[in-house]
Amino acid sequence: MTMFLAAVAVFLLLNIALGLVRIVRGPTMADRMLAAQLFSSTGIAIMLVLSVVLAEPAVLDVALIFAVLAVLATLAFTRRLWKSTGGR
């Protein structure tokens, strides 16, 4: 089981690596923000998996915090940055 979950973690990490292309290519800021959003979800998933693999309950706390704060960056992005530049 551990072996499987570790493989899942590697797979998810590969997903992140793949998604980096979108950040590099853009083309708009929204695309990049979306990529970040995806990474956040994927990262949370990795943490969930790791919590079982490492048998460390505190890992879930970290995942929890990421989950609850995931909205913050997007919020700042839409409220502060996007508006001030008109999306460009």
Binding site: V71, L75, A76, R79
Partner: peptide
């Protein structure tokens, strides 16, 4: 962070 969320939103 909570405070920031409130103020921003």
């Amino acid at each position: 962070a909570a405070a920031v969320i409130v103020l921003l939103s």
